[in-house]
Nucleic acid binder design. Structure first.
Lengths: 219, 219
DNA sequence: CCTCGATAATGAGTACGCTCATTCTTGTGG
DNA sequence: CCACAAGAATGAGCGTACTCATTATCGAGG
């Protein structure tokens, strides 16, 4: 259905191995967590030798990036989707941010590891570059949305504001795994932070107003 | 000979070893970078066995946290100090943020590693907890300063805004080591981001304008 | 079909962070 | 001064991510 099968056995096998390794890693990370899973286990489950894993991913982290880049992209798409209907720009950005955050909460520990590897890992690696490109796209989308709602704003401010929104999202995901602020509702805090960044302190009527809005009304 | 010697040889030796290990780690990380230095080298330079290092620091990361917590604290104090004279609240926060950022630029790679370990490391460790407390203090200081300038603002908004400022600083330090945005001036971007967060999009004229603004313009 | 160059796969080897059973040191009571 | 308990120091050993010389496999040309 896709391309004509000009693939020889060699390329075919490589493609299958790539898929098996990817799938094995995804399963193991989901079952036991990124930190606890070993590359040997990934190799075993994929039915390849230990060294073979590293012909398909430069590092263990790259396996995580491969897997979560997809999740990240899909969450953004979902958030953009629910922002499609006419909507206040702030709410549109919120729906993107909260979609990513909610997706992260499916496995907070692995998502935190993803954020860590994405932003602090070696830049040379392929899937990290891909992940950073997704971040850049997300920031672009947000900046564009802000500009559409406020054409008098200059482009650089919109871009920097979008970067700040991502920074807050990044730290929100990071802190959700390590219970740095145990008493707080991380989701609500993130929502309020984005609101404060986009609408400014002046526009927040009261804290109660920002804080008490219904949990379910985002999307 | 200095303090009253109530210490036995035992405690005295432990104290000296702690200092030697701390100093050896600081030197090695400065010379070769955190990632390249090994705990064996730290032990050798401190004149102790490999295992002894781990009686004084729970992990290699803890060595880094020990060292950079001090730098972080001092940078904040310096920033707070230069914000002591009467000053616009936005500028006061800027002086804190930029002091930390500038201090980080003395060794961007290690500072990025510090941010990584601080926010993503295991919470149980002693020096990480200490570092997080410094972050909390910094956010408190910023929140208090914002409230002083705008008493009508509610406390939670100030706190969340301060957290956003830290998030942007954190990511700024992270990106300064990995050249994620090569064409950009990271310092200027950080400055502008803080300005946008604190003063809101409406008040920003241009990038240059944000940089060159007068000190006296009240909010 | 056979040969042979290219390259994919292998798995023992390496480096390094960290552990822990053992050894050494210190302070104390007799 | 000696014996001994507490606990600090040691360093060989372990687990794991990653490497690389060697081996297995593929595909093209004869």
């Amino acid at each position: 259905m896709t391309a004509p099968q000009v693939l020889g056995r060699r390329e075919r096998n490589m493609q299958l191995k790539h898929e098996r390794i990817f799938a094995a890693a995804a399963e193991l990370f989901a079952e036991r967590g990124f930190a606890a899973a070993t590359t040997q286990e990934v190799a075993d489950r994929a039915g390849v030798a230990a060294g073979t894993v590293f012909r398909y991913a430069a590092s263990k982290s790259e396996l995580l990036l491969m897997i979560y880049n997809r999740m990240f992209r899909e969450a953004i798409a979902e958030g953009v989707g629910s922002a499609a209907r006419p909507m206040d720009a702030v709410d549109a950005v919120q729906s993107i941010v909260m979609a990513v955050f909610d997706a992260s909460m499916a496995s907070p520990e692995n998502s935190a590891a993803y954020q860590r590897e994405l932003l602090f890992g070696p830049a040379s690696e392929r899937y990290r570059a891909e992940g950073l490109a997704i971040v850049a796209e997300m920031e672009d989308t947000i900046a564009t949305r802000l500009l559409a709602a406020a054409p008098e704003m200059d482009a650089d401010s919109a871009r920097l504001t979008a970067a700040s929104v991502f920074a807050v999202l990044h730290l929100g995901i990071a802190r959700s795994s390590t219970q740095a602020h145990p008493g707080r509702d991380a989701r609500q805090d993130l929502h309020d932070q984005v609101h404060l960044i986009l609408a400014g302190p002046a526009s927040s009527k009261t804290q109660a107003g920002a804080n008490q809005q219904q949990k379910g009304n985002q999307r």
